[in-house]
Simulated scan of single mutants.
Amino acid sequence: MLNNKNVVWHDHRVSKEDRLKLKHQKPCILWFTGLSGSGKSTIANAVEAKLYELKKHTYLLDGDNIRIGLNKGLTFSDEDRVENIRRIGEVSKFFIDAGIIVLTAFISPFKKDRDMARDLVDGDEFVEIFVDAPLEICEQRDPKGLYKKARTGKIKKFTGISSPYERPEKAELHIKTDQMDIEESVDIIMKYLERKGY
């Protein structure tokens, strides 16, 4: 096992400030959280497209895509969910250091894990976006058929059914996708980013 005393942070000649000057933007993590089927990935994709139109440097980390590669092998146990989000938080921190606006679309059901990700960066570099839809609406949408499998016992520990989702208490943005369409949701987020100087 590697002794942590042998691991030393190596400073870079090009600083975070240098990268920010080059990109002419303020980096942040747009952390989309909510139940499966609430619209996280859809809205995150639409927001990234808008930012791209504005010539902003972005990258979208999506739950399923990350589990195919970086987090391949992690299960949906509580312990592995914590590790999944820990890794995403650390990767997102690198993107912030690179001067990128990073969008993350993860259920991230546990408040302490979202707080952990928030604590990795400066206070104004983390924007929690609660993509909220009632469970019954998410089940009606069920784009991947996961709720049906969870209800029949084929998926254990499924968030909202057999595993809890801890709703954000102080999210910077609260998007209710049962009450507004994608365009309205994106507009709220973009206006917030403009107002805050991102």
Rank of each mutant, 00 (worst) to 15 (best):
M1L: 11
M1N: 11
N4P: 15
V7G: 09
V7C: 13
W9E: 09
H12T: 15
R13C: 12
R13G: 13
R13W: 08
V14W: 07
K16S: 11
E17S: 15
D18W: 11
R19I: 08
L20P: 08
L20S: 09
K21L: 15
K23P: 06
K26A: 10
C28G: 04
L30E: 01
W31K: 06
I43A: 06
A49D: 14
K50F: 12
L51A: 11
L54I: 09
K55H: 13
T58C: 07
T58V: 08
T58I: 05
Y59C: 13
L60Y: 09
L61Q: 07
L70T: 02
L70Y: 00
N71Q: 02
L74S: 03
S77P: 00
D78S: 09
E79F: 01
D80E: 00
R81H: 02
V82M: 12
V82P: 01
I85H: 00
R87P: 01
I88K: 05
G89P: 11
E90Q: 15
V91F: 09
I96D: 09
G99I: 14
T104Y: 04
F106C: 10
P109F: 05
D113K: 03
R114L: 00
R114F: 00
M116C: 03
D119E: 11
G123E: 15
E128V: 03
I129K: 00
I129M: 02
V131H: 01
A133R: 02
P134S: 12
I137W: 05
C138E: 08
G145P: 08
K148I: 11
K149L: 04
R151N: 13
R151V: 12
G153N: 11
I155D: 03
K157Y: 06
T159P: 01
T159H: 05
S162I: 13
Y165C: 04
P168V: 02
A171D: 00
A171I: 01
E172R: 03
L173N: 03
H174K: 11
H174M: 07
H174T: 07
K176V: 00
K176I: 00
D178N: 12
Q179I: 10
Q179K: 15
I182K: 06
V186H: 02
D187N: 11
D187C: 06
Y192K: 01
L193G: 01
